[in-house]
Simulated assay, not measured.
Amino acid sequence: MKAAQQADAGKRPARYGRPEGWRGRLYDLIFLSDSPAGRRFDIALVAAILLSILVVVLDSVPAIRARHADLMHALEWGFTLLFTLEYAARLLCVRQPLRYATSFYGIVDLLSVLPTYISLLAPGSEALLDIRILRLLRVFRIFKLTLYIEEYTRLGEALAASRRKIMVFLSVVLMAVLILGTVMYVVEGPAHGYTSIPTAMYWAVVTMTTVGYGDITPHTTLGKGIASFMMLLGWGILAVPTGIVTAEMTARRVDRRQGPARLVRACAACGSAGHEGRARFCKDCGAELPPAPERG
Rank of each mutant, 00 (worst) to 15 (best):
C267F: 08
A122G: 00
L51E: 02
L136P: 00
V61P: 00
S272Q: 13
D42F: 07
R65V: 08
D109C: 14
A239I: 00
A89K: 06
V240W: 11
R132L: 09
D284Q: 07
Y185G: 05
A44T: 01
G189E: 03
V94F: 09
V173W: 13
Q6T: 06
A287T: 03
E188L: 08
Y117M: 08
P36K: 03
A127S: 09
E288L: 04
M201D: 01
S171M: 11
K2D: 09
G274T: 10
Q6R: 13
I142D: 03
I237G: 06
L222Q: 08
R154T: 05
R262A: 06
R12W: 14
H275G: 09
T250K: 10
T221L: 12
V206W: 01
K165L: 11
A37C: 02
G214V: 08
I30G: 06
E288R: 14
S33L: 04
T80D: 07
L75C: 04
L121P: 03
V245W: 06
S162A: 10
L170V: 04
L82Y: 15
R154M: 07
V168Y: 05
L120Q: 02
I149C: 04
A4H: 11
V46T: 02
V187F: 05
Y152A: 02
L121T: 03
E157W: 11
V187L: 13
L155W: 14
L114R: 09
L81R: 10
L71Y: 10
Y87I: 05
L180S: 13
K11R: 15
S52L: 01
D130G: 15
M72S: 03
V56W: 15
L178E: 04
A74N: 12
I226L: 15
L145V: 00
G225K: 00
V240E: 05
E288Y: 00
T102G: 02
Y185L: 11
F140R: 03
S125V: 12
P190F: 04
F169T: 01
P198V: 00
G214R: 08
D34Y: 07
G259F: 07
D70P: 05
A269P: 02
I118P: 01
Q258H: 05
